[in-house]
Design a protein around this nucleic acid. Structure first.
Length: 406
RNA sequence: GGAGAGGUUCCCGAGUGGCCAAAGGGAUCAGACUGUAAAUCUGACGGCGAAGCCUUCGGAGGUUCGAAUCCUCCCCUCUCCA
């Protein structure tokens, strides 16, 4: 059994631990059941969730038993930790549909030994008064109110509904402790309060120790939340964020983040991670290619990663083949016969949100067809612009879209 | 329930009858420079367009030649009191 605590620590996964003296020993002594919760508040997980997923994968590789909890029950309430305002309430149907999507994604990270459970199985049937008597009595409102994660909300408003969230999550941990022998809960730093609450509950009810570990809140070097772009989140679902876009997100990693991200989002041995991350200039740029490839392979599989890499190379280095992974739109060939206005075309394939945006873009010299800059908004694309029945539209240096005749 | 303060374009935030598609900052996008990085500089940044037109300042009405700005009602948030 490899020393998973050392691995997690070395790779940067460990932010806070409830009992730093005891936890490594526990993990070294034998298989430990551990869990992480995932909120089914969207149809897919995004890049920010990769950290806990990778942590679960590392645990399993080291011989422990990972459990992923879908928060089907807790999502009915909504976690206020670290949030500025209350989230829109989701319908039960949406929540369970989302949960099914997440289950697929989580399964890519944990294997047969791991479990994916849904806390709605035990939360939805709770009866109010008995829950208050059995669980609620262990919680001190005074203490909850002083928690850091509620601080903002105490200024901006916190509904009673959300205030209960912590009890439910703590109860989750208790249930898992009792039914599955789960001794470790992990989660993002924003979960610290909830995790500690669960530990305390277990100690009070069972008089036994349990542990907690949090991951650092992931930010890019420029201070952006990991996995968020101007255009929205970087999703793990290929329908929402194509493997190509996913690859590009990591390909464009800030220099300062390369080493960290290699440690977090790939399974490459740390020696290699350190070597790749220590490169300079052009070589560091190549490390980013490796990072993008490896991370894409973890989420979408080797084949998709290969394809995305080919597509990126062909889009950026001009090599002819490998277009297949580039976002593509099919258009009726009849429409080309008379020529399509560039303004309409760029807007239609989604490279720009509106025609005004296309006009601005062209005015500023940011629109190209293959490698030719478009200089006037009057320009039309005709069959003469096609090569092999397709045409590459470019916006700026990085966005590429392929149009194919049908 | 009572008193007060607020809700402005992606975010923060100015604007209290025409000069407002709305200051300023951030974010974003494009150009230059580069390494598909960062930093910097330049420009753009509601929509449709040739001019010009259309839609926007919590919602619905109203006053006015003219409203983000005034009036009425409603919804929401915060603070204090109960």
């Amino acid at each position: 059994m490899s020393d998973v605590y050392a691995i997690l620590k070395e790779r940067g996964f460990v932010s806070q631990v409830t009992d730093e003296a005891a936890l490594p020993g526990l993990l070294a002594a034998g298989p430990v059941t551990c869990y992480v919760g995932f909120d089914p508040t969207a149809a897919s997980l995004h890049a920010g969730s990769l950290l806990p997923l990778m942590a679960l994968a590392h645990m399993e590789r080291a011989g422990h038993r990972p459990i992923a909890i879908l928060g089907g029950g807790t999502a009915m309430v909504g976690d206020p930790s670290g949030k500025t305002e209350m989230r829109k309430m989701l319908s039960q149907d949406d929540i369970s549909a989302n949960g099914e999507g997440l289950r697929q994604q989580i399964r890519k990270f944990i294997g047969a030994d791991g479990l994916v459970l849904d806390n709605s199985d035990w939360l939805l049937e709770l009866s109010y008064v008995s829950f208050l008597r059995e669980i609620g009595r262990h919680f001190s409102v005074n203490r909850m109110l002083t928690a850091e994660s509620y601080k903002i909300r105490l200024e901006k408003g916190l509904s009673f509904l959300e205030f209960n969230y912590q009890l439910l999550q703590a109860y989750d941990y208790l249930v898992l402790f009792q039914k599955y022998g789960c001794h470790l809960q992990m989660g993002g730093d924003d979960q610290w309060g909830n995790i500690v609450a669960g530990m305390d509950l277990i100690r009070r009810v069972e008089a036994k120790p349990a542990y907690g570990l949090t991951f650092p809140l992931l930010e890019t070097a420029s201070g952006e939340k990991m996995g968020k772009t101007a255009r929205g989140a970087v999703w793990l679902d290929a329908e929402l964020t194509s493997a190509y876009e996913f690859y590009q997100y990591f390909r464009n990693t800030d220099d300062r983040d390369v080493a960290r991200f290699l440690a977090f989002f790939t399974f490459l041995p740390m020696d290699e991670v350190r070597a790749l991350g220590a490169e300079k200039d052009a070589a560091l740029n190549r490390s980013k290619e490796r990072l993008a490839y490896e991370a894409t392979a973890v989420v979408h599989g080797k084949e998709a990663a290969e394809k995305a890499q080919q597509a990126a190379r062909s889009a950026f280095c001009g090599s002819a083949d490998g277009d297949a992974g580039i976002p593509t739109t099919e258009l009726d060939s009849k429409r080309f016969a008379a020529g399509i206005g560039v303004v309409d075309l760029f807007a239609e394939v989604g490279l720009c949100k509106s025609k005004s945006e296309v006009r601005r873009l062209i005015k500023q010299g940011g629109a190209r067809i293959a490698d030719r800059r478009i200089t006037t908004i009057e320009e039309k694309i005709t069959p003469a612009d096609l090569c092999d029945g397709c045409v590459l539209l470019r916006v700026g240096k990085k966005k590429v879209h392929r149009v194919v005749l049908r």
